[in-house]
Lab assay of single mutants.
Amino acid sequence: MQIFVKTATGKTITLEVEPSDTIENVKAKIQDKEGIPPDQQRLAFAGKQLEDGRTLSDYNIQKESTLHLALR
Protein backbone atom coordinates (compact mmCIF):
# COMPACT_ATOMS: atom_id res chain seq x y z
CA MET A 1 0.00 0.00 0.00
CA GLN A 2 1.06 3.58 -0.44
CA ILE A 3 1.53 6.05 2.40
CA PHE A 4 2.81 9.61 2.47
CA VAL A 5 5.38 11.14 4.77
CA LYS A 6 5.36 14.91 5.13
CA THR A 7 8.68 16.39 6.21
CA ALA A 8 9.22 19.50 8.33
CA THR A 9 10.21 21.37 5.16
CA GLY A 10 6.82 20.61 3.62
CA LYS A 11 8.10 17.99 1.19
CA THR A 12 5.95 14.88 0.78
CA ILE A 13 7.60 11.48 0.31
CA THR A 14 5.61 8.54 -1.06
CA LEU A 15 6.44 5.10 0.35
CA GLU A 16 5.33 1.59 -0.60
CA VAL A 17 4.67 -0.33 2.64
CA GLU A 18 2.71 -3.23 4.12
CA PRO A 19 0.43 -2.92 7.17
CA SER A 20 2.71 -5.47 8.88
CA ASP A 21 5.80 -3.26 8.40
CA THR A 22 7.30 -1.94 11.62
CA ILE A 23 7.96 1.73 12.18
CA GLU A 24 11.65 0.77 12.07
CA ASN A 25 11.13 -0.60 8.52
CA VAL A 26 9.41 2.61 7.49
CA LYS A 27 12.32 4.68 8.85
CA ALA A 28 14.73 2.50 6.84
CA LYS A 29 12.68 3.20 3.69
CA ILE A 30 12.83 6.93 4.43
CA GLN A 31 16.60 6.60 4.82
CA ASP A 32 16.81 4.87 1.40
CA LYS A 33 14.89 7.73 -0.23
CA GLU A 34 16.15 10.74 1.71
CA GLY A 35 19.42 9.68 3.34
CA ILE A 36 18.19 10.58 6.84
CA PRO A 37 19.49 8.13 9.48
CA PRO A 38 16.61 6.40 11.33
CA ASP A 39 17.94 7.50 14.72
CA GLN A 40 17.34 11.11 13.65
CA GLN A 41 13.77 10.47 12.52
CA ARG A 42 10.69 10.98 14.64
CA LEU A 43 7.47 9.84 13.01
CA ALA A 44 4.00 10.86 14.15
CA PHE A 45 0.49 10.00 13.03
CA ALA A 46 -2.73 11.57 14.31
CA GLY A 47 -0.74 13.48 16.92
CA LYS A 48 0.95 10.36 18.35
CA GLN A 49 4.65 9.62 18.17
CA LEU A 50 5.25 6.20 16.60
CA GLU A 51 7.47 3.65 18.34
CA ASP A 52 10.02 1.62 16.35
CA GLY A 53 8.86 -1.83 17.45
CA ARG A 54 5.20 -1.33 16.55
CA THR A 55 3.63 -1.96 13.14
CA LEU A 56 1.62 0.33 10.90
CA SER A 57 -1.48 -1.76 11.59
CA ASP A 58 -0.94 -1.29 15.37
CA TYR A 59 -1.56 2.40 14.76
CA ASN A 60 -4.38 1.78 12.29
CA ILE A 61 -2.36 3.45 9.52
CA GLN A 62 -4.06 2.63 6.24
CA LYS A 63 -3.39 3.27 2.57
CA GLU A 64 -2.81 6.88 1.66
CA SER A 65 -2.40 7.89 5.31
CA THR A 66 0.01 10.77 5.90
CA LEU A 67 2.70 10.48 8.57
CA HIS A 68 4.65 13.47 9.81
CA LEU A 69 8.43 13.36 10.00
CA ALA A 70 10.40 15.49 12.43
CA LEU A 71 14.17 15.37 12.83
CA ARG A 72 15.85 15.33 16.19
Rank of each mutant, 00 (worst) to 15 (best):
M1C: 03
M1Q: 03
Q2S: 08
Q2N: 07
Q2D: 07
I3W: 00
F4T: 07
V5N: 00
V5F: 03
K6L: 15
K6H: 10
T7C: 04
T7L: 14
T7R: 07
T7A: 06
T7I: 11
T7K: 11
A8Q: 09
A8R: 14
A8L: 12
T9R: 10
T9S: 10
G10H: 10
G10D: 07
G10S: 07
K11M: 14
K11F: 15
K11N: 11
I13E: 01
I13H: 04
I13S: 02
T14C: 04
T14S: 10
L15R: 00
L15A: 02
E16Y: 13
E16M: 13
V17K: 00
V17T: 06
V17I: 04
V17H: 03
V17W: 03
E18L: 13
S20H: 14
S20C: 05
D21S: 14
T22M: 15
T22D: 05
T22W: 12
I23T: 10
I23P: 02
I23E: 01
E24G: 12
E24P: 04
E24C: 05
E24H: 09
E24R: 15
N25P: 01
N25F: 14
N25K: 07
N25I: 09
N25L: 09
V26T: 06
V26L: 12
V26P: 00
K27M: 04
K27H: 02
K27Y: 03
A28I: 10
K29I: 10
K29A: 11
I30L: 08
I30M: 03
D32V: 13
D32Q: 14
D32C: 05
K33W: 08
K33Q: 10
K33F: 09
K33R: 07
E34D: 06
E34V: 08
G35W: 04
G35D: 06
G35I: 02
I36S: 04
I36C: 04
I36N: 03
I36Y: 12
P37T: 08
P38D: 04
P38E: 06
D39R: 13
Q40I: 08
Q40P: 02
Q40C: 05
Q41K: 01
Q41E: 01
Q41A: 04
R42I: 15
R42T: 12
R42P: 02
R42N: 11
R42D: 10
L43K: 00
A44M: 13
F45W: 07
F45A: 03
A46Q: 14
A46I: 07
A46W: 11
A46C: 05
A46P: 02
A46D: 08
G47P: 01
G47D: 09
G47N: 07
K48R: 08
Q49V: 15
Q49A: 11
Q49C: 07
L50A: 02
E51W: 05
E51V: 15
D52C: 04
D52G: 14
G53K: 08
G53E: 09
R54W: 08
R54L: 08
T55E: 04
T55Q: 13
L56Y: 01
S57Y: 12
D58A: 08
D58R: 03
D58C: 03
N60E: 02
N60F: 15
Q62A: 08
Q62N: 14
Q62I: 07
K63W: 10
K63V: 08
K63D: 13
E64A: 12
E64W: 15
E64D: 12
S65C: 04
S65G: 06
T66E: 15
T66I: 06
T66G: 02
T66H: 12
T66R: 04
L67W: 02
L67V: 08
L67F: 03
H68Y: 07
H68L: 15
L69E: 01
L71M: 08
L71A: 09
L71E: 09
L71S: 07
R72G: 15
R72D: 10
R72E: 14
R72T: 14
R72L: 09
